[in-house]
Write a protein that binds this DNA or RNA. Structure first.
Length: 341
DNA sequence: GAGTCGTGGCT
DNA sequence: TAGCCAAGACT
C-alpha cells in the first residue's frame, strides 16, 4: 500500500463525493451566438452548449448511477494506483488492463518498489498489454518519483508532466482523479462526446486542437470537486454510451441537447481517420521478438530470435529498434535479454 | 504535424 | 474477412 494519499474523487463508491449542482460555467464559448438551438434537423451545430443548458448535472447524475466499479477508482487505489492505471489504459481497453493492473499493484504497491526493480522486470510484467515502452516509462517515472518526490506521486500538474510517459492527458487525469483537482481532461472519449454534443460532428479532429482545449476549459465546472467528477463522468459517457461506433443515444443523459443528434447525425466528412495496419510491420516483428525475451528468464541467443521472422533485414531493424528503445539489452556473443538497467 | 509504437476483440 | 477500435506519448 502506498503512503496515504488523498482519496480518489471519481469513484462511484463514494457517495459523499456527489457534488452540489453548479450553475452553468459562465458564458458559453465566445464563438457562439447566444440563442436557443435550432429545431431538430435544421441546426448548423454551433459551438456551444445547446440552449445554454449545462451538461454537467445530467452527465454526473448518470455517472452516479452507471459508473463502472473499477479498482483504480476505489479510494484504496491511491495516486499510485491511479497513475499505473492511466499508463496501462493508454490505447488499451479496460478489460485487458484489469488483470495486469492487479498483479502490478500487488507486486509493486509503491513507486519505490517498482524503482528498486530492473526495468526489464517491468517490461516482463507488462505482458501482452502492448506498447511496452509504456512499461519502461512507468519504471522511469517511479524512479523519478522516488528520487525527486520522496516516493509520493506528485500532485502538481507541472511535476506530473515532467515525468516520463506522462503527457497532457495523463497529467490532468492523475491530478484530477487522484487529487481531485480541476483540470480539463481531454482524452479520446471526452473529445468524442464534445464533438458530438457540443460541436455537432461525429468525430473530433485527428489531433487535439486549441479549440478543443478552449471548449474543455469552458465546460469545466467551477468548483474542484465537481470538475473532477465531471472529468470522470464525461469520459465514462464516451466509453460506455457515446462510443465511436454504434452509439447508444437512447441511454444518453444529454441526448436531448446533443448537437450532432439534433442535426440528424451527419456522417463524418473530413479526412479519413488514419487507420493502423499491423500485419507485416516492424511493430509485429518487435512484438514477436519481445515475446521471446519476456518468456525467457535467461539470456537468449540470436538464433532463437531469428526464428520469429523470416526476413532478415526487417528482423534486424526491429531488434535494433528494441535495443535503441532500451527494451532489449544486447550482451556479448550475440545474446540478448530484457534490460537489467 | 505526421509517423511510430502492440495487441486482441469485435463487426 | 479485413478493417476498426481501445483512458496517448514522443520524436
Amino acid at each position: 500500500m502506498t503512503a496515504p494519499t488523498k482519496p480518489s474523487h471519481n469513484g462511484p463508491s463514494d457517495p459523499a463525493a456527489k457534488p452540489s449542482r453548479t450553475p452553468a460555467p459562465g458564458t458559453a464559448p465566445d464563438t457562439v451566438p447566444d440563442q436557443a438551438p435550432a429545431a431538430p434537423g435544421t441546426s448548423p451545430a454551433g459551438e456551444r452548449e445547446a440552449s445554454g443548458v449545462p451538461l454537467h448535472a445530467p452527465v454526473i447524475d448518470w455517472f452516479d448511477e452507471h459508473a463502472r466499479d473499477l479498482p483504480w477508482r476505489r479510494p484504496e487505489a491511491g495516486a499510485w494506483g491511479v497513475m499505473v492505471s492511466e499508463f496501462m489504459l493508454q490505447q488499451t481497453p479496460v478489460s485487458r488492463v484489469l488483470p495486469v493492473y492487479e498483479q502490478w499493484l500487488a507486486r509493486w504497491p509503491r513507486p519505490a518498489d517498482l524503482a528498486a526493480e530492473a526495468p526489464g522486470e517491468a517490461v516482463r510484467a507488462w505482458g501482452r498489454l502492448g506498447y511496452p515502452r509504456r512499461a519502461l516509462r512507468l519504471h522511469g517515472a517511479a524512479a523519478a518519483i522516488t528520487e525527486r518526490h520522496g516516493g509520493d506521486v506528485p500532485a502538481d500538474h507541472a511535476q506530473l508532466l515532467a515525468l516520463p510517459g506522462i503527457g497532457e492527458y495523463t497529467a490532468a487525469a492523475v491530478a484530477s482523479f487522484a487529487y481531485g483537482q480541476r483540470h480539463a481532461v481531454l482524452d479520446t472519449n471526452v473529445r468524442r462526446v464534445f464533438a458530438r454534443a457540443v460541436t455537432g460532428v461525429q468525430y473530433p479532429p485527428n489531433a487535439t486542437t486549441a479549440a478543443e482545449r478552449k471548449l474543455a476549459r469552458a465546460l469545466l465546472p467551477d468548483d474542484e470537486a465537481s470538475a473532477a467528477r465531471w472529468a470522470a463522468a464525461s469520459m465514462e459517457l464516451g466509453a460506455l454510451v457515446c462510443t465511436a461506433k454504434n452509439e447508444s443515444c437512447h441511454r444518453c443523459p444529454i441526448a436531448a441537447q446533443c448537437a450532432w443528434r439534433l442535426a440528424g447525425k451527419p456522417a463524418h466528412d473530413g479526412p479519413p481517420r488514419r487507420g493502423q495496419t499491423y500485419a507485416g510491420t516492424d511493430r509485429q516483428v518487435r512484438g514477436r521478438l519481445l515475446a521471446v525475451l519476456r518468456d525467457a528468464h535467461v539470456p537468449v541467443p540470436q538464433s532463437a530470435l531469428d526464428q520469429v521472422w523470416h526476413e532478415p533485414v526487417q528482423r534486424a531493424r526491429a531488434l535494433d529498434g528494441l535495443v535503441a528503445d532500451g527494451l532489449v539489452e544486447p550482451l556479448a556473443d550475440g545474446m540478448y535479454r530484457l534490460p537489467l538497467s
